[in-house]
Design a protein around this nucleic acid. Sequence first.
DNA 1: TTGTGGTGT
Length: 703
Amino acid sequence: MEAIGRNQATAAQIQRLEDAAHNPLTGKEWPQDHHQLLQERRQLLAYRHYQEILDAYHKSQVMILSGDTGIGKSTQIPQLLVYDEYGSELRIACTQPRRLAATELATRVADEMGVVLGEEVGYQIRGDYMIDKHKPKKTRLTYMTEGILLRQLCVDRNLTAYSCIVIDEAHERTVDLDLLLALLKKVISRRKDLKLVIMSATLDAALFQKYFDNCPLVHIAGRSFNVKTIYLREPGPDFAVLAAAHVVDIHQHGEPGHILVFLPGENEIERVCKLVRGETDGLDVFPLYSSLPAANQRRALRSSGPNRKCIVSTNIAETSLTIKDVVYVVDSGLSRQMIFNPRLRMSVLGIRPISQASAIQRMGRAGRTRDGVCYRLYTKEGYDQMAPSTEPAIRCSSVESVILRLVAAGYRKVMDFDWLDAPHPESIARAVQDLRDWEFLDDDAKLTQSGHYAAYCPLDPIWYRAIKTAAKFGCSLDMLDIAALCTTQTSIFLRPSGYQQAADLLRTQFAHPLSDHLTHLNAFNAYMRAREALQERFSDPRSILEEWCMEKFLNMRALEEVCIAREMAARFLKGKIAPSRASVMDMTSVRNALAVALCTHTAIHYSGDVYRTVHENTDALLSPASSLVGRNHEWIVYTTLHKTGGKQQLQIATAINAEWLVDLPFFQGAIMPKTGKGLLRQPQVKKSLDDAKARMEARNERQ
DNA sequence: TTGTGGTGT
């Protein structure tokens, strides 16, 4: 390649390289479509700002790049940096919040640069990579998820393999991103030759600029196409009815072009679909949400008949999936959001207004291929009252694993760490307390050996502890499966609208009378058996497996995720924890291990369907899906405490014996919640444990 | 009488 020193390239030089007879990266001739791709790329706004971006990049260690979606930031900027960084002989990483984006961008950019995917341009996501690992210099640019870079940061705290890190979609503010930025800020102070480019939507750019000592900001103004925004004149009564009416009106009177409707969830979506179908002809209506079987999702995205298409979707179409040729957007202004309440250690799921940033993102979905229209089912005043940006995820989730990773990275002052937005102090305090209860931190908040392992284990910390505990009970492999099932957030059980009762009925074939954890395990084992049997008989059993899952109302995507999580965790645990399995005939040991490991998540039966949690001292019902409903076991452990639709629920529970709790440190007198007068707030807990103790003593005497 | 969306050498 033409000799350009590191960080000395000009836009003209790069253009010359791209116009040359041979590909400067490979020395080979360009692929046939090179010139056409180049022409398309040179139309993109991001490409047209090459020189301005290079100037800012050369001048400063950190820079922020802002601009609307669809201008080619994610594809063009990393390519530009490949040429500019060529002299450094180190790699460039470009992070993405989602796996799909990482793989698709890598594929596209490898094409545009005229190289083979996995050679000069590659990707890395969990359980899958296309990079040249053996020749360190070969892969110049790697698209990866934020989590992958965080992992690499744990191993190599100065990221010595890289000369430049590009953070894309920074405005999405995932938990991993906030942790990554905080750690990168430390890295760049140690490594002055490491460059950082943060790409974000316009609205949040100033925030990042301030965080990085007022570094330069380049804004690429303009968007690919205009979208006209139409507000409601006065607030409407029922957003579902309103949404349906807008769709019908657009279909009857509007110019050609597909319609995309944003609603909070599956229920609302199915309702609107029904309303619209009843009143239109020649309109293909598709629901779209994550628990929809993959085939139905594909149909919604790919179908292209002569009819107009209307897709009624959750937030999944806001960022994760792109629908071609959308001209109309109907935005309800609402979404379901999960917010963590640190005091109750409880997640609350509810329908809330979206942010302005999110409204803009939804609107932009109408202007990807030509000018569009966005109908907002709220007033201009309603829009003005929305929060400018979506609350960063680190502010509304539990932070046990974040704090653990932070301590593992060598930062112990977790309370006054330099965050972009700090987690709630109460969240941090809770996390530190939990990590101590789980023995990952000692009394000086120092990392223990087992805390060190938990930080590197690709499972939630509490599940690493559960596997460790299970090893003592001779069932570490059963617990590994349960851990993978619980760490994978999406449920393996489907309950499609219209088939709820059938789904509930079929679920009972896996039901374990004493445990939802074991119910999940039964279903997972059944899937693994079917998978193995089919793999022996067919070379590509995927579609048959998909059918098998469909019949049993199991979510195959979730089950495959569980498989990957399990394999990765198993690889990590090899040599650290002895593998063992409980007898199929008696899973008592698994329940006992769950009781010990999840002892901070115990609840005692109160009255009727009501349980009261020991730690938070709050009343909650078993989830209606639990196989323990109506059985009134005295003690249970649960995986999560949720609030949905105003009701507090305990999800994924297992019945346990009081005898298993009496000797645990967590249940010794001092830790029990007390009232101001020093009286036990839950005398029933004490009584139950005392009774259990008496029973144990009596048994010992008899022997 | 139940549920938005992501992610992990």
